[in-house]
Every structure is written in structure tokens, then in C-alpha cells.
Design a protein around this nucleic acid. Structure first.
Lengths: 258, 258
DNA sequence: GCCGGTCAAATGACCCATCAGTCGGTTGAC
DNA sequence: GTCAACCGACTGATGGGTCATTTGACCGGC
């Protein structure tokens, strides 16, 4: 999004750069400097993101991407060696964005205290990231698995990095005696799996719940488990302690909450 | 009738029916009865399962399937309207198999007692199902998402059914006061997500752990959570109570356990 | 300020491999 | 002899990747 404005500025023609899809587009200013080229590259990646997200990898043609980027077919190949290479670049970009989004959330002062506070922040950040751009999250963190060994490896690497980040937090918490002593990687993976799946789910079905509420639920489940607890252990988060994280839901009835 | 024997016999080459891929195959006996045709249909689905699993949906051609089924290209279209229809049939078959595999496990007398016993059985059955045929589980319960809206809907339906099954168990347990009172569908989905993701993970990376051990871990995590518990609550399963489910691992070190 | 030369960015018609699906022909079980 | 299972060559469409050509930003000389 931001890049459009940027390129529009560079483009020179003030104002009505936002034209309809089908209209013959004003030709973009030729990229000259390295900075220009980096920006153009980024524009193509953004175009790829929206078209791939909308139609899926296989159903999207390079021509589609070119059109969305307001470039000719051949120009895409000037910046990327192949359709695959373009997709790899897109994966890289998005993975970096997700990671930094989470780390940002972790760095910020946690709202609340206790074992769950940083975890809650990270979980919430993940949900937010996914819901900010549902289509591309879906494409990149789920569909990409099915695109063949090449992409699968890449995605697996990204996922491993994510699990590794979680593992660090887990080990720290274990050393501090804040959580039980279990194989950390297994714990980390389980945490990542749960978060990831729920984030995915929220992409597809609108549960109508705030990211924070769901984050509370997840953190509570992870920390306390499902067994009833007789000693009034308080739940995570600032909400009322006695009840679930599902924000004053009537409860009981088995309606689709997520 | 003994038509199995018949078809095997007509098939000719006694015993070594498992021939290499490329060898010119003896022509199959023509399917005549409805039963024959059902069997032939099933053969094609099996062939589809192995080829799709090996190469992925898009990379597999109908010719590949035909070859694997020892049929001609055109014959596949005698039994299925399109490549898509074939894949839908395959999904249907596998989903049914998974479901009945789990229900079978739930029906069997649980080994152990307590809240976790049936859950543990079901989890273990799921893991076993996935590891019995890794490639096709991967294809059908993960990759199929990326194949376009049509397949996604189908897969989503299957998944919903799965979650629904879990939900029944959850509601039952809640009513009995065995687990905490949370929105049941959310709980069910979380359980399904965790199980599903770990099963997926086990497809790709060999953790060297028994399905039972991992099932113990998952159930323990789901029931007790990660917080340390001061009152010697025993863990689920027959293993040693004090320590993790990871079967005598040296522990501590952050090595990849899963 | 103008001009023509240079070279890389940008273009899009074209090439060609791939495959889903068709159809007229063949065959074997009854 | 009949007819439906079976066959496989063919077709038409699609789309990734190439490349000869065009364009335009910049520069140095005047």
C-alpha cells in the first residue's frame, strides 16, 4: 500500500493515480537508481502478494502480476528470474514482517504481570498480524506447503525459525521455574502449532472475537490446561478471574464461537 | 463367486503382481458386474492416492494415475468425470477412513482411567493413522487447502466434522465436570488443532518417538497446562509420573525432540 | 539550453511444452 | 451378435519463459 503512494510521488503525476483496474495505466517512471530498482522490485512483490493471495499460486499467471504492478510481462522477468523466484521473495518478505511484528510486541512493556504476560502479547501480535491481511497470511503460511518440495523447504525453514523464537522464551521460563520442565522444543512446537492453527482458523471463519480475547483463551489453555482447578488460581490477563476468556459469553450452548 | 480370486487369477502373473512401475502390464480383466466396477473405481482411487501423494496434485497428470492403475488414459474418464472429481473422491475416502479409525479407538476399552484415558486413545489413533501413510495424510489434510476454493470447502467440511466429533467428547466431559467450563467449540477446535498440527509435524520430521509417548505429552499439556503444579498430580498414562512424556530423554538441552 | 549518443529498463509478440478432456475405434464377456 | 468397458491418438487451451525491439533517463560536448 505505502509503496503506491511512494511510486506515485516519484511518478510525478499528482493526484489521480488511483485509477480503475482495467483502464490503460499511465506508464511508470523508469527505474534508474538502485533505490528506484529496489522500490520497483518491492512494487512487484506487493502486486504478487495481492494477486497470488486472491487467486492462489497456480491460478495466477505472471501476466496477472505484471498487470497488477502496472508493468509489462517481460519486465517482471527483468527483476525476477522466474515465477518461483518471485514467490520465494514474497515468502521471505512476509516472514520477516511477521517475525518483526512479534518481536516488536515482545519488546513493548507487557500489559499485566505473571508468567503469561509476554506470551499473551506475542500471541496477540500473531493474531493481529494474520487478521491484518488474511488472504496473504493464508497463502503464505498455509497454502505454500502444497506448492512442491522447493517451497515447502523454504516454508519449513521459516516455521522452524518461528518455533526457535518460541523455544527461547520457553527455555527462559523453564529456567526461571515458571513453567513445568518438559522437552522445550516439543513445548515450543505445540505452542506454535496452537497459535498458528487458531490464527489460520480466524482467517477463514470470522469468530467475531477480539484478538485479545482469543489470546487470553489460548494462553489460559496453555498455562492451566483443561482440568478444573479447585484453588482459586487467577487466570491470565486483566479480565475477571473466575470465568473464561470469552468475554462474558452466555457460555454453555455449543454455538460456533471460533 | 469368489470374484477376488477371479480377478487376481485373470490378472495372470501369480504371486508377483507387485511389478515395477514401467513394465508393460498385463491387461486387467474387464469389469462387468457392479461389484467389479466398484472395485475398479477403488483401484483408481488407490492409484490416485499414491501418485498424488508422491508428486502433488498439480504435478500429477491423469496419465500418471492411469498408468499406476494399469488402465489407459481414457478409462479413468470412464469412471470419473474429471481430475477434480477423482480428487474429491479420494478426499472422501480418506476422511472416512480417518474418522472410523478414531471411532474404533474410542470404542475399544481404554487402557487406563481418568479424564484423559479416552482422549489419549483418540489422539494416539490419530497419530497412528497419519504415520501409517505419511504422504497421503500430508496431501489430504494439509496440501489440499491450496488447491482452490472447491477443494478447500470440501476439506473444511471434513475438518468441521472432525472438530464436531471432538466437541461431543468435550461437552460430555464438561457436563460431567471433568474439565473446566469453556466455550466447547473453541476448546474442541484447539484440541483438534494441536493434534492435527503435531500429526502433520510427525509426517515431515521423524522425531523417533512412539505415537503413545507423544499422545501422552499432548494429553498432559491439554489437561494440565504448562504451569508447575505443587500438588503431586499424577500425569496421564502409565509412564513414570514425575517426569516428561519424552521417554527417558536426557532433557534440559534444547535438542530437536520433535 | 540543446542535441545526439549510450545503455539499461521496459515491452509484448512469439515459441513451445504440457495436459485436461474428447472421441472414434476396438475388444472381450456374456 | 451386442454392448459397454477399455483404449490411446488427437485437440485446444493455457501459460512460463525468451528475445528482438523500443523507449527514455542521463550525460558530455557544444
Amino acid at each position: 500500500m505505502g509503496s503506491w503512494a511512494e511510486s506515485a510521488a516519484t511518478n510525478g503525476d499528482g493526484g489521480g493515480a488511483m485509477s480503475g483496474a482495467g483502464t490503460p495505466e499511465r506508464r511508470l517512471r523508469r527505474a534508474v537508481t538502485e533505490e528506484d530498482k529496489g522500490r520497483r522490485r518491492h512494487e512487484i512483490i506487493e502486486a504478487a502478494k495481492s494477486t497470488f493471495s486472491a487467486k492462489g499460486f497456480h491460478a495466477t499467471t505472471v501476466a496477472d502480476v505484471a498487470r497488477a504492478a502496472h508493468l509489462s510481462y517481460g519486465s517482471v522477468y527483468w527483476y525476477f528470474d522466474s515465477k518461483d523466484a518471485l514467490f520465494h521473495a514474497l515468502m521471505e518478505t512476509e516472514a520477516r514482517a511477521l517475525r518483526s511484528s512479534i518481536q516488536e510486541a515482545l519488546a513493548a512493556p507487557p500489559a499485566g504481570a505473571g508468567a503469561g504476560a509476554p506470551l499473551r502479547e506475542a500471541v496477540q501480535a500473531t493474531f493481529r498480524f494474520f487478521e491484518r491481511d488474511r488472504a496473504s497470511a493464508k497463502l503464505l503460511f498455509r497454502d505454500a506447503y502444497a506448492l512442491g518440495d522447493h517451497f515447502e523447504e523454504h516454508l519449513f525453514g521459516i516455521y522452524e525459525g518461528f518455533v526457535g523464537d518460541v523455544e527461547e522464551v520457553v527455555v527462559e521460563a523453564m529456567d526461571a521455574g515458571m513453567i513445568i520442565d518438559l522437552p522445550p522444543r516439543m513445548v515450543a512446537f505445540s505452542v506454535a502449532a496452537l497459535i498458528g492453527q487458531i490464527a489460520q482458523r480466524r482467517i477463514v471463519t470470522d469468530d467475531g472475537l477480539e484478538a485479545g480475547v482469543v489470546a487470553d483463551f489460548v494462553v489460559s489453555l496453555l498455562l492451566y490446561g483443561l482440568l478444573p482447578r479447585s484453588f482459586g488460581q487467577s487466570r491470565v490477563g486483566p479480565g475477571d478471574p473466575g470465568r473464561t476468556g470469552a468475554g462474558g459469553e452466555p457460555g454453555e450452548s455449543g454455538g460456533p464461537l471460533i
